[in-house]
């Protein structure tokens, strides 16, 4: 059984304990909790400023130097249309890979590592356009609602249209 679970894990389901579960890194923006699959996360680091990029939308906070590579930072709060974060040293950048690219997401704090069952993931209810656009689904954990971030959607549309 163990071998099976392991096999499943390397096949990309991201489950360590059981074939049908998912491990998430959960982080908070204000009262809200969001999560991304743990396998996409490369690194978590404290906010240490970023060089602003001209002619980009407000949710692009700029670029940072990650061991010699330039990585863009997206302000998740601003991305959800709730205004730019005023970051302090206590804010956190979660660096993850989206396809071939590495991007950083600015969040208030990283709260937990969650294991959820795939069966528990629900579709995002129609209505709130930003949520439907940016979330893959929602899941309830310990009576908290966790929004699963669609990274591809978050990083799209970064440039100001000419």
């Amino acid at each position: 059984m163990e071998a099976l679970a392991f096999k499943d894990d390397i096949s990309g389901s991201g489950a360590a304990a059981a074939a049908n579960s998912l491990q998430l890194i959960a982080f908070s923006i204000g009262e809200q909790t969001y999560g991304v699959e743990i396998t996409t996360v490369r690194e978590i680091r404290a906010w240490n400023g970023a060089t602003p990029l001209p002619n980009t939308r407000e949710f692009v906070r700029g670029v940072i130097n990650l061991r010699g590579t330039i990585v863009p930072i997206f302000d998740l709060r601003a991305r959800f249309g709730e205004g730019q974060t005023s970051p302090t040293k206590n804010h956190v950048v979660v660096v993850m890979s989206v396809g071939e690219k590495w991007v950083g997401i600015l969040v208030d704090a990283v709260s937990d590592i969650l294991t959820v069952s795939k069966d528990e993931i629900h579709n995002v209810p129609e209505g709130n356009s930003v949520d439907t656009e940016l979330l893959n689904g929602i899941v309830t954990h310990d009576s908290r609602m966790v929004g699963l971030i669609d990274l591809h959607a978050v990083v799209s549309g970064a440039k100001v249209d000419a």
Binding site: L53, P54, T56, N65, T69, I70, V71, P72
Partner: peptide
């Protein structure tokens, strides 16, 4: 350094450097 490696090109900017 390339901006496009992890982001995209930006008008008026030829790239980045550290």
């Amino acid at each position: 350094k390339s901006l496009e490696e992890n982001f995209q090109s930006i008008e008026g900017i030829a790239g980045g450097t550290i």
